[in-house]
C-alpha cells in the first residue's frame, strides 16, 4: 500500500450529502478485473453528459461543465470536500480506487459510511471527519478563493487552512501506523498465524459443525 505522510493539496468541493458509491463509480465499471484505471470514470454520471462504458476514451466525451470536477480552477485537486454520509451504499472498493486513481489523497466530510471509510485506509487514502461547522467554513473559503489549498499532516493529525488556522482529526493508532508506513496488512496479520491456528482449533472443538 502507498504510504501517506503529508499532502499540501488543492481542494475540490462537491457540495452534496449522501454521495453514494454508485455515484462515485457507476456499476458498469465494476466489470473490470483490475484495480486501476478507474480515475477517468470517477463520478461518471455527473461528470459527462453521455453514458460511460468501460474502456471508453474519456478525453473525447462531452463534459458536464457545471460539475465541479470539470471546472478549470479545481484541476489537479488532491483533497475532496463533501457533505454528510459520504460513500454510502455499495461496499465496492472501486470507489476508493477511482478516487485514488483520479489523484485525490484526502477526503474531508462531516461523516462517512462505515465500509467506505475502512476501504479508504486500505488504499492509502486518508478520510477525515471534520465538524459540520468546519466543513461549512471550508466550503465557504474554498468557493471564495481560487487555488484554495489545505495542508494535511498525518503524523500530527492536523489540517492547516491557508489562514494558518488548523484543526485536529482522529485516526486509530493501528490505521495511522499502517498508513504512515504503507504496510501490507495481510503480511502483518500473518505474523499472528499461530494465534489464528490456535483459535481455529479451539473453535473447531466447541463448534465442530462450523467446519463440516
Amino acid at each position: 500500500m502507498k504510504a501517506f505522510t503529508q499532502v499540501h493539496g488543492l481542494v475540490c468541493p462537491v457540495d452534496r450529502a449522501n454521495i453514494d458509491t454508485d455515484a462515485i463509480i457507476p456499476k458498469q465499471f465494476l466489470k473490470s478485473i483490475k484495480r486501476t484505471g478507474f480515475g477517468p470514470y470517477l463520478f461518471d454520471e455527473w461528470r459527462y453528459t453521455n453514458y460511460g462504458e468501460p474502456g471508453m476514451d474519456c478525453s473525447t466525451r462531452p463534459l458536464n461543465k457545471d460539475f465541479v470536477l470539470n471546472q478549470p480552477r479545481y484541476q489537479g485537486a488532491q483533497v475532496l470536500l463533501a457533505r454528510d454520509n459520504f460513500g454510502c451504499g455499495s461496499s465496492r472498493e472501486h470507489a476508493p480506487w477511482a478516487i485514488d486513481d483520479y489523484g485525490f489523497r484526502v477526503v474531508i466530510a462531516p461523516s462517512f459510511a462505515d465500509i467506505f471509510f475502512g476501504n479508504c485506509y486500505k488504499n492509502g487514502i486518508l478520510p477525515i471527519v471534520a465538524s459540520a461547522e468546519m466543513v461549512d467554513q471550508l466550503f465557504a473559503e474554498c468557493f471564495a478563493n481560487e487555488g484554495y489549498k489545505l495542508n494535511v499532516d498525518l503524523e500530527s493529525q492536523t489540517v492547516t487552512l491557508p489562514s494558518g488556522a488548523s484543526f485536529k482529526f482522529d485516526i486509530t493508532p493501528h490505521r495511522k501506523h499502517c498508513l504512515l508506513n504503507g504496510l501490507d496488512e495481510i503480511g502483518l496479520t500473518l505474523q499472528h498465524a499461530d494465534a489464528i491456528k490456535a483459535f481455529e482449533n479451539k473453535h473447531k472443538a466447541t463448534q465442530p459443525w462450523l467446519f463440516a
Partner: peptide, 23 residues
Amino acid sequence: AHGIGTSEVEHVLATQTLIAKKA
C-alpha cells in the same frame, strides 16, 4: 454478518480473519 471491501476479501482469503474494531 457484514459487507467488506476487496482488500478485506483478500485479507480473509489469506488469513481467515478481519482487522476490525467493535461497533
